Amino acid sequence: MREEIYNFWHMCDSAFPLNVIMSGISYCDKNYRIERHGEELYSFEYIIDGNGVLEINSQTLYPQKNDVYILTPNSDHLYYSSEDHPWTKIWIVFKGDLAEYLFKRYLPADTYIIKDCNILSYMNEIINISSARDKSYSELIDEVSVMLLKIVLHVKNHLEHKMLSAAEQIKLCLDVNIENRLDMNDVSTQLGYSKNYIIKLFRETYGITPYAYFRKHKIELAKQYLLNTHLNINEISVKLNFADQHYFSSTFRAVVGISPSEYRRGKNKTASQTIPSSSNSC
């Protein structure tokens, strides 16, 4: 059995809305077995590979590859790996008012396992944050809080849309990441489908490639920022995670036919021309 563990229990401060107790990766063996009773802790544990058993509050569950299981405060729980195919899992243990709020606001009560819910990219980022040597505990808490919110929302959306087709799952992934920098490798990692399968299925279903769809809708969002905010071109470029302002402008021109500046000037001119003059009012 081998584990990579990052321990922060000695840094916990009740003044923080969230405290991270531990995070890590466990390469379990047949002897792996954890039992707790009534502790004030939350935990997300994502199964990278393998099988095992979770007994929690009179439920017996069988987390396996690509599943998430959740441990909640005051629960009686016991979990252990199978003998023939033990878990490899990545996990975080935490507590605090923010954790309580997120769980009560977004997740159904008494939900302890989410099947086929890939949160590996978020969990890997938590491990990266945990292992950084140049961060204060306060900085770590801020960054982990953001990742936990993303996990909770991902799990919530997964539970609400678990009946979506594969094509609909791909579209949802593109839509919720519209302000982010995203490529097909990211989508493949999040959904567990191959990149070629994603491109083929999406084109067959929607008549457009995922890349073209994502670019088109990102530019539609850029139009809204140009029309309805005072953000300059570079700020919009940064907000939408383009590589730089030049790439944003060239992409915008390729989709719309004019530059972002020309689009903003043209729409503002049209709007001003439609405002009636007050000097001749009756």
Rank of each mutant, 00 (worst) to 15 (best):
Y263M: 07
I170S: 03
N177S: 15
L226D: 05
I178N: 13
I113T: 03
Y6M: 07
F252C: 09
L107D: 05
Y32G: 00
I178D: 07
Y42C: 01
Q190A: 15
E35V: 07
F103H: 05
I25H: 00
E220F: 14
Y211I: 07
L201H: 13
I21R: 02
K218R: 13
S138F: 15
Y211T: 09
I258A: 10
D110F: 05
E55D: 05
N232A: 10
R181S: 09
T209R: 14
I233M: 15
I178A: 04
S165K: 14
Y263A: 03
H246K: 12
I113Y: 02
A271T: 10
D49P: 02
T88V: 09
V155K: 05
N57L: 03
S23D: 05
Y101C: 10
V20I: 07
N57Q: 13
I92F: 00
I178F: 12
E125I: 04
S249K: 08
R215E: 13
G24Y: 00
I21C: 02
H10Y: 08
S272L: 11
Y122T: 00
S138W: 07
N232T: 04
S165A: 10
Y137G: 00
M184V: 13
Y112S: 03
H217R: 12
L102H: 02
Y193H: 12
K171C: 09
Y122M: 13
I90P: 01
G38Q: 08
A167C: 12
N66R: 14
T274A: 09
